[in-house]
Design a protein around this nucleic acid. Structure first.
Lengths: 255, 255
DNA sequence: GCGCGCGTTCGAATAGCGGGAACAAACCTT
DNA sequence: AAGGTTTGTTCCCGCTATTCGAACGCGCGC
């Protein structure tokens, strides 16, 4: 069975989102610029853009358009109503305060990891991660923790789809190596990331599982490689983290 | 001239967003449920939903669909690239730490105020406000601060459009009263909110203006009415706030 | 002051959208 | 256990709404 059925999509909707995607990547663009980019008639782009503008979805400033803050409203709404959000948020804050490092809450969606909440510790590293960031699961600690606790058939499908693209020189790109790591992660309950996602950054990640035992998300603690090492990385932080995710799972079951 | 031209919108795009709106309001819905809500044929909704799903914009769980976290990605992106965001964020954090109250950064878009960043103080009140929340400008301190510093013709158009709907018993619903308040706000440079937005909550708001003198956003400090009163509310907090917005304006001009 | 490039308008042709009916499967109810 | 109800899904036809290209008007810069 194909991942998404081969039905004819509604092409008009696709062009509308193609336009939105262009605006997202260019920050701000005019009608002609969009039309050229998408190989569409100017009049088509014009009518679409005006439709989106009348809904408030894009905003005009001068002769260029940009995406509106309605998407912020939609997006925050999506995040807030995710079952993990309410229960994970306070624990993420706690972990950040206790460890002084950057702590993230990540959920799984369509086989990718999505950062939905992050808390700063006093010595947080600054990475390219931000709320809403989507990352392939094999590329970071939280993602590997999730991946390890998904049904076997889903794991294989995800590996097929993303083909283990490298993010840094340390990213795991070998299927067998990944499979054996996932086995280890399942046994000890948490994942480690040695500069596999950002050079110079190490991390620990632990899954948050639902009642059926499948991961729905994960929490991770990340920091500079020269601080997060030795027993801190392999013992102290995992213990702290697993305590937190365990509590989260309990709260999740009773909410 | 009409606010948005009377051109025929692309109806297919409208139905796509109608579907997304239904999903946003219901948290999660099935094909038939959406079709009933919108008075559309099931086959139409089916095809649209599948199109959105194939783009990853909606996610299927069981036989219901919900909006995906792509909107979070879009939305956070929109927020982060707003000129005010980078310069205001640290100041908002500072104000929250100094005052121990809730501090918001609000921007103006299409005549409404949009909350793009909030910082908690140690004694923050909890209101219904959240990132992405859209509020009519006349209903709160930050909004009135913005409204007072917009071009006169825009002010009138906004008043026409929103008709001064009440949010609490204290919300200003009289045009003349609002106009005279706006005049006062322009003179002293900041706006006050006495339970006009949330019962039991007072607030101060000050505009952030661009080089032309028009407001592009505002910063507000909000807290319980019995704590935010007297000279604290009318002198100390405004002074603090105006110092911050002044700095923000300077940084904004040089970024 | 001329022309290039932009947003905007218009009309026409056809492709693609919307609808309804029919199918399959899952779920309750009895 | 069986039938009835409701759900997602599929198909095809007719018509409308989308698309395109060409033409217009405008402003900016060369």
């Amino acid at each position: 069975m194909a991942r998404h059925s081969d039905h004819r999509p509604v092409e008009t909707v696709e062009t509308a989102f193609d336009i939105l995607d262009v605006l997202r990547h260019t920050t701000s663009a005019g009608i002609t610029e969009i039309a050229d980019e998408l190989d569409l008639a100017k009049s088509t782009v014009y009518r679409h853009t005006k439709t989106l503008e009348s809904r408030g979805l894009v905003v005009r400033s001068g002769d260029t358009y940009r995406i509106s803050t309605w998407f912020l409203d939609y997006g925050i709404h999506v995040r807030n109503q995710h079952p993990l959000f309410d229960v994970a948020t306070p624990k993420v804050d706690e972990l950040a305060a206790e460890t002084d490092e950057k702590v993230w809450c990540v959920i799984e969606e369509d086989g990718v990891g999505v950062h939905i909440y992050g808390a700063e510790g006093r010595h947080s590293v600054r990475t390219h991660a931000r709320i809403g960031k989507r990352t392939a699961l094999h590329q970071f600690a939280a993602g590997k923790a999730i991946l390890a606790h998904l049904p076997a058939d889903r794991i294989e499908r995800i590996l097929d789809e993303y083909d283990l693209a490298a993010q840094t020189a340390q990213t795991i790109t070998d299927r067998d190596e990944l499979r054996s790591q996932l086995e280890t992660i399942r046994e000890r309950g948490y994942a480690l990331n040695y500069e596999e996602s950002v050079t110079g950054v190490h991390a620990v990640g632990a899954p948050v599982k639902d009642e059926s035992g499948d991961a729905i998300g994960a929490i991770s603690i990340a920091g500079p490689a020269n601080r997060l090492r030795g027993e801190l990385l392999t013992d102290d932080l995992p213990t702290l983290l697993l305590g937190a995710t365990n509590e989260i799972e309990i709260n999740l079951a009773h909410s």
